[in-house]
Amino acid sequence: MASTLGTGAVTPDRRAAGAVRGRLTGPALIAPFALFYIVFLVGPLIYTFVAGFFNGSLLRDGFGSWVGLTNYADVLGDAEFWRTLKHTLWFTVLTTVPLVLLALLLAILADRFVRGRWFFRFAFFAPYVIPSASVSLIFMWGVLADQVGLAQDWLKALGVDSPPSWLGDPSWAMWSMAGVTVWWTVGFNFVLYLAGLQEIPRDVHEAAAIDGAGPWQRIRHVVVPMLGRTTTLVTVLQIVASLKVFDQIYMMTGGGPDGSTRPTLQYIVDTGFTDGRTGYASVVSLFLFLVILLISLVWFFLVRRAEKES
């Protein structure tokens, strides 16, 4: 790139001094955040790791007494831990797939509008800015409520005699939670996709059109492949966000009915803060951390390999 060649004009001395300063500038700029990172992230992580070897209690001072790997063995043998992990993974599947596909679809549709695109961008993104507490209230008392909720009304209008209790029936509650989450957060992925779409140069579209590609073929063979990196980003962010689900489930069902929506993060809160078992909750947190790390790594590895192959 031509403009960067201009730096060759400075003298060697200046360049050496600049290099020293340059070497210090980076770490100096990072230092405040690094400190923050150590105090609030690395520190607690080490604390969590250490606490996992003790039977600590919120109601007693200190770590408690050393129990070795007992907490690890207990967590691995805890049916409720596996059940909540299954809920978390199931929620991730139920939300990630529609949140990626729907966001892509909406972005492609909205991108076709030249005039009024701002409106669609706004309309699809708007739910995302609502706080989780408001979303929970809207759906608990408005849409998904029993007897008076909109969702039941619509089904009754369609001729269904006894629509399910969306948040009260164990076999529907998780689907309801996934639906609420999709409605609420699709706007974020939509905006990422829209930005990706606008990066695709017009000439590629034109070249494809001249070569005789129809609209559907252009989407399949030009747009989707060129959005590859956006898709990777969107999917990773979405998987991590879904694995960390807590707010809306805690507020809307409290993990119920019959524990059918309780995610692992709530299990950590329940064992750690309600039951006061800090050692045990620490180990559950570590396991959830490992699961999120592992899934992210596997995904990145798969994407990397796919990119190399192409």
């Binding site: 990422l192 930005a195 990066e199 966000a241 707010d247």
Partner: peptide, 14 residues
């Protein structure tokens, strides 16, 4: 669900 806002620009290739 907490999620850090990532600049859409980062997704743009090149």
């Amino acid at each position: 669900m907490l999620r850090r806002l990532t600049s859409p620009g980062r997704a743009a290739p090149g």
